[in-house]
Each structure stands twice: as structure tokens, then as C-alpha cells.
Write a protein that binds this DNA or RNA. Structure first.
Length: 1035
RNA sequence: GCUGAAGUGGUGGAAUUGGUAGACACGUUGGACUUAAAAUCCAAUGUCCAUUAGGACGUACGGGUUCAAGUCCCGUCUUCAGUACCA
């Protein structure tokens, strides 16, 4: 029976009620709806939109959203028209995998998941303009993704003007002058044709040629095929040779696929990085990914063959150092050049390397291998013959798949030459190459190189290229590592291509007939013939007469044709969504965003999201924006002006440690026995170690891991204590083991050797562990999912509690360390969650989630509340603020403003705490102070700020209030508490008026009794006085 | 290997241009209030020595510059992230 029931006092800080009230108010009043017409300056704050997964939000997700929300709210207070939208990247693999397992349509699971996300986002109080929500899986949205795809198809890239243009311009050039003089981005295998030839080609032939020029094209390419996922993956979707999602193996496979000619934009993507305000590390990652290298192509004639070997080199200055050539084993000339003598060896080598996966090749860089082909190439200048080798250190996928080996200047060539005893000519003046290659290019002169002798790198390179050009055997060239991006996915849950096929040639469906909607299929798996899931659709053909999707039965290849079976990758919809938000939902029908909207919002001013998108989303978006700009649809060159990567919040996993014991006596005998005996022993041991679960509290484990020998010299009190504790613990569970052994009737045959204890770690759900790492054993045993495993277990406690082991890992369902924001919002409120996530530390940093400190920020909010309200109601009045009140307020204004502008949100929270502590101590009740304080707090803790703001008599939302103006005059001090140092060590402080001159300060300090005591009669050599800062006495 | 970031109490972290290292908070300890608990409030809390006064040490490690270094310079170590035979 409760003796005392707390009075339901409206003067309490009842955060649940307050937060629900204001969330409702914001929604009903559309408080955060952005306008496309405003006199205010615009500001666009964007979060990377989430993929709505089935697991819902965990506390790591909102970190970036809270930061961007604080910034958006701050900008509103500062008089900006703020666009702060949110939406869902709702196409993707997990929903489809779930569909495969359950048969549930991905659209349904996605819808359910979005509902959960929305509820969770709403309860945190974000100031999103939900009226502009987008979902990439919505046909009204992907209509425009398809439309952009068509624009890419209808474009080529002109290298002269450095921009994409309408493909029609190219065809008109072809029909008037052929392709001899065009300087455009295209495939490598282009054949020259004249205008007459072009005009005489069949339509199919023309289309086939044009595919080699279009910015999205269909081509047979070597792709990364993931058999488990049943789809191809882009380079950025592969991490360490396995798929990013799921970690499945990936193999190389030739397939006809849509590709994006992003390589055409390599230089502009690189240059554009100069104009954006991103972190250096992110820019560096993109630069590496683009991988620009400047050099030359050189073509080597082959002895007794018409073939030439093309190589790319960044060091044309070292051309006289070439002593052999190496081709990738996959190089197309290998089979043609190999002599009969070497045929067997070469084929064996190719077979061997083909077996090695890409991953093995990457992992094993040390082993040098290769085979001589028997063929010779001719040096372009000396005409000397050099051997042609093949070796797997040369990659088929980079450059031309062949290198001119300069062993004196390249370590790999050097190692190869040493290994196979190939000559290593030295072409560097005064450099010793007996131990290793000289890979630098600065401060060295070229020698033994005919006309290049005595030149430095820069000069020699230029000259070598010039002479190669004279010979017609080379030219200057810039190479990029950036590959064209594969755009087809063999999946169901993605955007369908607006493409049908006539005589094997892809045709675009006219934009007016979009969207081409995803068809229904009975299963979400590939077909038996290995076609993508869309191959299962019955209604998936294009009727060119009626311009609609019709049944496959109608395909006659006259007017009805088959549609593309692949779908677009996850990054298609996310590459342009930031433009869609610019347009109000009501006006989105006829355009992806109207010209007015695009011109008004321009680009994203602040973008916050995870660093894992550095080479995927952030590169592809930039590419599409440049294309849209070139084709005149948008006016910006870069989508994201400023970008911040928030760090990840990691989970603190909890482990219980189980003891396993080995059977010692049996061990020795059995190990001498037959294989069968050994197997029996093994299974017996496994059984034994499982007969009884014994879990040891974490701090006790150290006693079990080691015992001390009392005969040892170093044996002392510490060791004795350790051993006693050890015995105590062992005694605790030893009888249990004995009992189990008895039960198995093994007594006498086995004994348990405690020196052979093993410990097994098992994750337990973090919700059963409190802040002091103590496990709630009862709840664990009653867990619906895993309780049974622990029901009969023994728990060895210390001081009455079981302590778990802890480890910081990525938050994930499989590690049972996921913490949902829901419970925190219920227990402490959204404002506490928001403040706490910011209080954890700098935004960019990775940090483990630990709720231990949340009471700190929650107490702060309660203190804040009490500053305005006590048991008798509102206590704020019109009292004249004191000097101290004003000082506290204005130093807070200054600091908070600086912090927000520097994205240093953690320090603002401390600043608020200090302000509230000070104002509390000052017993401040002045509205003149307390009202502006609420505006400062409101971006961080908007609900409590709204509630108190309305209590102060305001009828409008606090989000419409102006940010308080900082006035420096309130911070002017009349005196300073000077730290007085002796030889740099602070000994005492001394309060002195601010307006004293240097000399007066020195005089005052030297006269002070503590100074005299410190000096003990010595005369100082020097006295440093920095007015307003410090005094240092030397000597 | 290369590139980038970081290393500060028991913990998260603060320290703006070199100028009182450890703000703010958590935790811990002690106290007040209470029959009791919760809540709240107050005090102490880098380490070591000292009864006190006070002193020594202290920002990964070793040097250096300076009146003064967590901050600048040189070298080393460790951790994390990215990248990897890129010719």
C-alpha cells in the first residue's frame, strides 16, 4: 500500500505531457513548413535520409539528425527561411531478402517500417517539414529517377567544352564529318568511320556505335558478381573483396549491363572538391578514389609481330631504364606473343593465377611470380630488344594492363628483376641502387639516357613525351582510377528501367509515359533460367502503339517488345533527392522540381551524414548534379556546400563468461590411442564442457586464469591472497562438476584439471545489465528468446552480484547491444535524449553509448524548470536584472552562438548547465534574463523551451523568436584575478583592477607578501606582465 | 606499406590566438532532510608526500623552442579510420 501519493502538480516538470503537447502543436500548426517565397535569406539543412529497416531506429541514428535540427532551429531564430526536410531511401536489399523469405511484398514491409521510423522520429521532436517528404520507392518519385536515366542516355560528354551535350549533336557531326575529329568521352575500342560510312550504317549499327558514347550505356563488362545475393555489385559496395552487405564472396564475371560513364566527369569531380567545404579526410578519400595520375602512353613494337604493346607510365623520364616488359596474365596479346617454347609454362601460369581469387592476390603481395613469354619488344629509342614477361603484379584492370618495367625506379619492377635475374640498368646520377629501387623523382638527374642526360624529372618527362610523339610511339596522357559504375542490379525492389529492346538494341520509353511501374511477380527470386526476378512478371512488355505495359503474350517484336529485366541500384534514387525536397508536394506533378524552386534553394547549405558514403552516394550525386547542370536542368555545379560526417555511436556489448573444463588424465592416454579413441574423447569433452553451465562474474576470472606456486621465490602475500580467492571460487562450483561426472558414471576414469580451464564468451542482451555492469539474472532466465539456455545455469557471484564483461562494438541486432531511443524518451524525455546525445562528445567522434550520464542532463532540465516554476507557480517577474544576471546571460549567448556555428554542440550543453547553476545561485527571477535564455536553449531542448516560453505569456511558438543579441558591454570586467607564476609555475592569484598599467601591475605584485615569501630574498631576473592575462616572475 | 585523425583523472570530455590543465557531467565518499526509502540539497574528489602550512609529480614516450607548451618544432610508440601490387 502506498502511504504517500505524489500530488499531480502542474508545476512539476512533466516531460511526457509537455513533449506530446508540443509535438502535436507543431504538427497541427505546420510550424516548420518551409516557404518557397520569402524575404528572408534561405538556408537548406539536410540529413542523409534513412533506409527504413525492420529493426527501427537505435540511439545512433538520431545523432546527426539532432545536430542538424539544432542548426536548423538556430538558423530560424537567426532570421533564415529554413528548409529542413526528411524522407526515406526506401528501395533496398533487406526488404527484398525479407520478401524472399516470407513472400510478403517489399512495399508492405517498407510501409510498416516507415510508420515505425516516423513514430520514432516524431517522438524526438525534430523540426522537419514533413509536407515535403520523399520516398524513393514511390512511383511519383521514381518517375523522375527514370527520367534522369533517359537524360543520361541521351547525352554524351564533349571534352572540348567539358560538358555533357545532347547526343543529337554528336550524330549530326557523325553524319557530316564522321568521328575522326571528335574529342569526346567514349569506349576504348572505337573504330574510325567517315560521314559516308556513318550514313550508310544500318540503324542497329548506328545505335551500337552510339552506345559507346552515351553517358549511360549497355555493354558487356567484367562485373563483380555476388552469387549469394544473386546480383552484381559496384566497386564501392565491395569491402575487402566481399560484399558490403552480408560479407558474401564476389567473383569477376562478364555480363551485359548498364553502366554510367562517370569516368567522363573524373576531372570535374576532382576539381569540384576545391569549391566545397568538406573535411579534408573526406576530400582525400574522393581524390584517392578518382586516382588521377599524369604521365604518358608509350607503344612498344614487338619483334616479329605486327602487334604493339601499349603501356601507361607516370615516369616517361625513365624510359631508358626499361629492361623488360610485363603484361597482366589476362592481357589479350599474351596468347598471340607467346613462343612455342614457352607456351606450356605460360599456360600453366595463367591457369594458376586464374584460380587465385582477387582477394588472394591482394592479400599476398610478397610472393613474386611470373613467366617469360619468349617474345621481345623493341625499345622505341635504343631499338634494343627487351624480354616480355607476364606477371600477376600487373593488373588487367588498370591502365592498359601492361607496364614498361624500370627496375631501377620502381620497387615492384626491381623485385621482379632481382627474382628472375634480369638486368637492372641505373639511369640516376649518383644514386646507389644495389639494395633497392630509387622511387623518388625530386633532386635527381637522369643519366645513361641519351638525350635526357642531366635533366630533372620534369624536363626529362616533357622531352621524352615530345620525342615519343615525333616517333609516333606515344603521347602525354592522364589516367584515372575511377571506373565507370555498373548500374544494373538483378533485383526486384528497385527502379525499373524505362527501356525496351528492339533487335537487341535498347530503346528509351518516351518521358511522357513514365513512370514505368514495378510489375507484380509471384516470387522475388531469379528465374530458373537465371534471369532477374522481373523475368517472372507476366505483364512486362512494352506496347509501342498504345504506349503502355502489356502482357508478355503480346510480344510480337513488331509493335510490342520485351522490357528490361534489371532494376536500378540503391544509389539511383539517392543521387538527386535533395532537389525533390525543394519543390512543394502539391507542385511536383509535372516536374522533378520547378525552375523557381531550384533557383530559390540552389543547393544544400549543410549536409550531415555518415562517412561510409564517401565514395558511393557522395560521388554519384555529384556526378548526376553535373550532368543535370550541363543539360540545363539545374544551376548548381555541386549539391552539398558544407558537409559534416557525424561519428557512429557504438554499442557497449555485454558478455557472460562460461567456464569449460577439460578432462586431464584421459587426455594423455587417449592422445596415444587410435583415431576413433581420439574422436570419442573429443565428443566426450564437448559433452562434459556442456553438462553444466557455470558462469563466472567478470572480475573473478582473473583469479581462475592463473594460480601461483607456493614453492616459488616470488610467492608473497599478494599471491597467497590470490590463491585463496581462487580456491574459494573453485570450491564454489567444483562440487557441481563432481556431481555431473558422477551422474555420467565417469568417476575414476577422468579428473578435472583446473589449470586447463577455458572461458567462453556469450553476448547477452544489454537491457538486462545496469550501469554498474550488474546482470539481472532473473530477467535473463525469463527471457522469451534465450531464457531457456540459462535456466539451469550456475552463476558464481562476487559480493552478491554477477558482473558482465563489456566490449565496445558496432551497434547491431546480432550483438544484442542495440539501444532504442523509445525507452529513453519514456524515462527521461526527448529533450534529455537530445541533450545527452550532444553532450557525449564532439559530433564527428566515434563513441560508445552508455546511459550512465543521462541523469546529468536530465537533472539540468529539472533545474532549468525550477528556475521558472516553483510549487506556487510561475516565479518569473519583471525584476530589474542584476549585473551578474546580465553577465551570465551574455556570456552564454556568446558561447552558444560560437558553438553552434562551429558545430561544437557538446560544449553548449555544459554552457547551459553553468548558466543555470549561476542564475540559480543568483536567485534570478527576471524575465529580461530568463526569456532570452529559453531561446538559447530551444534548439537543443525545444519542448521544455516552448512550454516555459508559453508560460511566460507568449502565444506564438518560440521558433519564431529572434536569437538574443550579444552585448559585449555586459562582459567588461573591472578587475582581473591574475595568476602569479614563478618560473612558469602558478603559485597564487591576485585580484587587481583591469585599468592598471604594466608597471603598476608589476609594482603591486612585487610588493605582495606572498611574492616576497616566494622569492626568499632573491632578486628576479625578469618580470613578464601580460595585462589582463598573467604575471610571470623569472629568477 | 601509404594517407588521415587521435592519445588529457576512475569514466565521457573541456581548455578560443602558447598564458591558472582537468570546466561541465557521470561515478565514488561523507553529510543534511526522512520512521525509512526515493527525490532533493551541501561538501570532498588528478597522483604521491605532509597533522596543518605547503610541496613534488602530472596531458602516450624522448628531446627541443619559449619568461611560459596539452597547444609550436623534431623523433618514437600506440589506437582508430580509409586505401592498397594504380605502373
Amino acid at each position: 500500500m502506498k502511504l504517500y501519493k505524489r500530488k499531480n502538480n502542474t508545476m512539476q516538470y512533466d516531460f511526457n505531457d509537455i513533449e506530446a503537447k508540443w509535438q502535436k502543436y507543431w504538427a497541427e500548426n505546420q510550424t516548420f513548413k518551409a516557404s518557397n517565397n520569402s524575404d528572408k535569406p534561405k538556408y537548406y539543412v539536410l540529413d542523409m535520409f534513412p533506409y527504413p529497416s525492420g529493426a527501427g531506429l537505435h540511439v545512433g541514428h538520431p545523432l546527426g539528425y539532432i545536430a542538424s535540427d539544432i542548426y536548423a532551429r538556430y538558423k530560424r531564430h537567426k532570421g533564415f527561411n529554413v528548409l529542413h526536410p526528411q524522407g526515406y531511401d526506401s528501395f533496398g536489399l533487406p526488404a527484398e531478402q525479407y520478401a524472399i523469405q516470407t513472400g510478403q511484398h517489399p512495399a508492405i514491409t517498407t510501409e510498416t517500417n516507415i510508420k515505425t521510423y516516423r513514430r520514432q522520429l516524431d517522438q524526438i521532436g525534430f523540426s522537419f517539414d514533413w509536407s515535403r517528404e520523399v520516398r524513393t520507392s514511390n512511383p511519383e518519385y521514381y518517375k523522375w529517377t527514370q527520367w534522369i536515366f533517359i537524360q543520361l542516355f541521351e547525352s554524351y560528354y564533349c571534352n572540348n567544352d567539358n560538358k555533357a551535350k545532347d547526343i543529337k549533336e554528336l550524330t549530326s557531326i557523325f553524319s557530316s564529318e564522321g568521328n575522326a575529329n571528335v574529342n569526346v568521352a567514349c569506349d576504348d575500342d572505337i573504330e574510325a568511320f567517315s560521314a559516308e560510312a556513318w550514313n550508310s550504317f544500318s540503324t542497329e549499327k548506328q545505335q551500337e556505335i552510339l552506345l559507346k558514347y552515351r553517358l549511360t550505356y549497355l555493354a558487356e563488362t567484367e562485373v563483380n558478381w555476388c552469387p549469394v545475393l544473386g546480383t552484381v555489385l559496384a566497386n564501392d559496395e565491395i569491402v575487402n573483396g566481399v560484399s558490403e552487405r552480408g560479407g558474401h564472396p564476389v567473383v569477376r564475371k562478364k555480363m551485359t549491363q548498364w553502366s554510367m560513364r562517370i569516368s567522363a566527369y573524373a576531372e570535374r569531380l576532382l576539381q569540384g572538391l576545391e569549391d566545397v567545404d568538406w573535411t579534408d579526410s573526406l576530400k582525400e578519400t574522393q581524390r584517392n578514389w578518382i586516382g588521377k595520375s599524369v604521365g604518358a602512353t608509350v607503344s612498344f613494337n614487338v619483334k616479329d609481330h605486327d602487334e604493339k604493346i601499349e603501356v601507361f607510365t607516370t615516369r616517361p623520364d625513365t624510359i631508358f631504364g626499361v629492361s623488360f616488359m610485363t603484361l597482366a596474365p589476362e592481357h589479350e596479346l599474351v596468347s598471340k606473343l607467346t613462343t612455342a617454347d614457352q607456351k606450356e609454362a605460360v599456360e600453366a601460369y595463367i591457369e594458376k593465377t586464374a584460380k587465385r581469387s582477387e582477394r588472394d592476390r591482394m592479400a599476398d603481395v610478397k610472393t613474386i611470380s611470373g613467366v617469360f613469354t619468349g617474345a621481345y619488344a623493341e625499345h622505341p629509342f635504343t631499338k634494343e630488344l627487351v624480354q616480355i614477361w607476364i606477371g600477376d603484379y600487373v593488373l588487367a584492370s588498370y591502365g592498359t594492363g601492361a607496364v614498361m618495367a624500370v627496375p631501377c625506379g620502381d620497387q615492384r619492377d626491381y623485385d621482379f628483376a632481382k627474382h628472375f635475374n634480369i638486368e637492372i640498368p641505373n639511369i640516376f646520377e649518383g644514386v646507389d641502387i644495389s639494395e633497392e629501387a630509387f622511387t623518388g623523382k625530386d633532386n635527381v638527374k637522369i643519366a645513361n639516357s641519351d638525350f635526357l642526360n642531366g635533366m630533372n624529372y620534369k624536363k626529362a618527362s616533357k622531352r621524352a613525351i615530345y620525342d615519343l610523339e615525333q616517333l609516333g610511339q606515344g603521347e602525354g596522357k592522364t589516367n584515372y582510377r575511377l571506373r565507370d559504375a555498373v548500374f544494373s542490379r538483378q533485383r526486384y525492389w528497385g527502379e525499373p528501367f524505362p527501356v525496351y529492346y528492339v533487335n537487341g538494341m535498347p530503346q528509351m520509353i518516351d518521358a511522357q509515359h513514365l513512370p514505368i511501374q514495378l510489375p507484380e511477380v509471384e516470387k522475388y527470386l531469379p528465374t530458373e533460367e537465371g534471369e532477374p526476378p522481373l523475368g517472372r512478371a507476366d505483364v512486362w512488355a512494352w506496347d509501342t502503339k498504345n504506349n503502355k505495359v502489356v502482357s508478355n503474350d503480346a510480344i510480337d517484336n513488331e509493335t510490342v517488345f520485351s522490357l528490361e529485366l534489371n532494376t536500378m541500384p540503391g544509389w539511383a534514387g539517392s543521387s538527386w533527392y535533395f532537389f525533390r525536397y525543394m519543390e512543394e508536394a502539391a507542385n511536383r506533378g509535372g516536374v522533378f522540381a520547378s525552375e523557381d524552386a531550384l533557383n530559390y534553394w540552389e543547393n544544400v547549405d549543410l549536409y550531415i551524414g555518415g562517412a561510409e558514403h564517401a565514395t558511393g552516394h557522395l560521388l554519384y550525386s555529384r556526378f548526376w548534379v553535373k550532368l543535370l547542370k550541363d543539360r540545363g536542368f539545374v544551376n548548381v555545379e555541386e549539391p552539398f556546400k558544407k558537409l559534416i560526417n557525424q561519428g557512429m555511436i557504438l554499442g557497449t556489448s555485454a558478455f557472460v563468461k562460461r567456464i569449460g573444463f577439460r578432462v586431464a588424465d584421459l587426455n594423455l592416454e587417449i592422445l596415444k590411442g587410435s583415431k576413433e579413441d581420439k574422436d570419442n574423447y573429443k565428443s566426450l569433452q564437448e559433452r562434459l564442457s556442456l553438462i553444466k553451465e557455470i558462469y563466472i562474474s567478470d572480475d573473478l576470472i582473473k583469479y581462475l586464469k592463473k594460480g601461483y606456486n607456493s614453492d616459488n621465490e616470488s610467492y608473497g602475500d599478494k599471491e597467497r591472497e590470490h590463491n585463496e580467492k581462487r580456491k574459494e571460487i573453485l570450491d564454489n562450483f567444483y562440487p557441481v562438476i563432481e556431481y555431473e561426472i558422477n551422474k555420467l558414471n565417469l568417476k575414476g576414469k577422468v579428473s578435472v584439471d583446473t589449470s586447463l580451464l577455458n572461458f567462453y564468451k556469450t553476448h547477452v542482451k544489454v537491457q538486462y545489465v545496469n550501469a554498474s555492469d550488474e546482470l539481472d539474472i532473473e530477467s535473463l532466465k525469463n527471457d522469451a528468446e534465450f531464457g531457456a539456455e540459462y535456466r539451469d545455469a550456475e552463476f558464481v557471484l562476487e559480493d552478491g552480484v554477477y558482473k558482465v564483461g563489456r566490449d565496445v562494438e558496432k551497434m547491431s541486432k546480432s550483438k544484442y547491444n542495440v539501444v532504442s531511443p523509445d525507452q529513453i524518451c519514456i524515462d527521461y524525455g526527448a529533450d534529455s535524449l537530445r541533450l545527452y546525445e550532444m553532450f557525449l562528445g564532439p559530433l564527428e567522434q566515434y563513441k560508445p553509448w552508455n546511459t550512465a550520464g543521462i541523469t546529468g542532463v536530465h537533472n539540468f532540465l529539472k533545474k532549468l524548470w525550477k528556475l521558472y516554476v516553483d510549487d506556487n507557480g510561475l516565479k518569473v517577474n519583471d525584476a530589474e536584472p542584476t549585473k551578474d544576471n546580465l553577465k551570465t546571460l551574455h556570456k552564454t549567448i556568446k558561447k552558444v552562438q560560437e558553438d553552434i556555428e562551429n558545430f561544437s554542440f557538446n560544449t553548449s550543453v555544459s554552457t547551459f548547465m553553468i548558466a543555470v547553476n549561476e542564475l540559480g545561485a543568483q536567485k534570478c527571477t527576471s524575465k529580461e534574463i530568463l526569456e532570452p535564455l529559453l531561446v538559447l536553449v530551444s534548439p537543443y531542448a525545444p519542448h521544455i523551451a516552448e512550454e516555459l516560453f508559453s508560460k511566460l505569456g507568449n502565444s506564438a511558438s518560440i521558433s519564431t523568436a529572434d536569437f538574443p543579441e550579444f552585448e559585449a558591454s555586459h562582459l567588461v570586467e573591472s578587475s582581473k584575478n591574475y595568476p602569479i607564476s614563478f618560473n612558469g609555475k602558478m603559485r597564487f592569484t591576485l585580484e587587481l583592477p583591469m585599468d592598471l598599467s604594466k608597471d603598476e601591475i608589476e609594482k603591486a605584485v612585487m610588493a605582495h607578501e606572498k611574492t616576497i615569501a616566494q622569492l626568499e630574498g632573491r632578486t628576479p631576473k625578469k618580470v613578464i606582465v601580460v595585462p589582463g592575462k598573467i604575471v610571470n616572475i623569472v629568477g
